[in-house]
Amino acid sequence: MKAYPTAAEYLRHHRPERPVLALRPHALARAADWFVANFPGRVLYATKANDAPPVLAALAEAGIRAFDVASLPEMERVRQVADAELYYMNPIKSRSAIARAYGDFGVRCFAFDSHDELEKILAETNGADDLTLFLRIACPNTHSLIPLEGKYGASAEEAPALLLRARQRATRLGITFHVGSQAVVPAAFGEALTQVGQLIVSSGVLVDAVDIGGGFPARYPHSEPPGLDCYMEEIVRAADALAVKHSCELLCEPGRALVADAEAVIVRVDARRGNALYINDGAFGALFDAAFSGFRFPVRCVTPGREDLGPADRRSRFYGPPADIADYLPGPFVLPERIGEGDYLEIGQVGAYGRVLANRFNGFGAFDEIVLRDEPMLSMFGERQRDDGEDARSIRL
Rank of each mutant, 00 (worst) to 15 (best):
I212H: 02
F189Y: 15
A218E: 07
G215Y: 00
I200S: 01
G190T: 07
G215C: 04
V185R: 14
C230T: 15
P226Q: 02
L193A: 01
S202W: 06
L228Q: 06
H222V: 10
Q198I: 14
A218M: 08
V185D: 13
D208Y: 11
P221K: 08
A188R: 05
P186V: 10
Q198D: 12
G214N: 00
Q198H: 15
P226N: 05
P226T: 03
V210H: 11
L206S: 15
P186G: 10
S223F: 14
R219L: 07
V196W: 08
R219E: 04
L228G: 10
G215H: 00
G227M: 06
F189V: 12
Y220Q: 00
F216S: 13
C230V: 15
D229N: 09
Q195Y: 08
R219P: 00
A192C: 12
V210T: 13
V210E: 07
G204E: 08
S203Q: 07
Y231P: 07
E224D: 14
A209P: 04
L206Q: 15
G204H: 06
A209G: 02
Y220V: 00
S223N: 14
F216A: 13
S223E: 14
L228I: 05
I212A: 01
D208E: 08
S203V: 08
A192E: 02
I212L: 10
G214M: 01
Y220M: 04
C230H: 15
T194I: 05
F216L: 15
I200A: 02
R219S: 01
L199P: 02
G227F: 08
S202L: 11
V207L: 03
G214S: 01
G214H: 01
Y220A: 02
I212W: 03
C230L: 15
F216C: 14
V196R: 01
H222L: 12
L206D: 15
G214F: 00
F216H: 10
D229I: 05
A209D: 04
T194N: 05
Y231N: 10
G215E: 03
F216W: 12
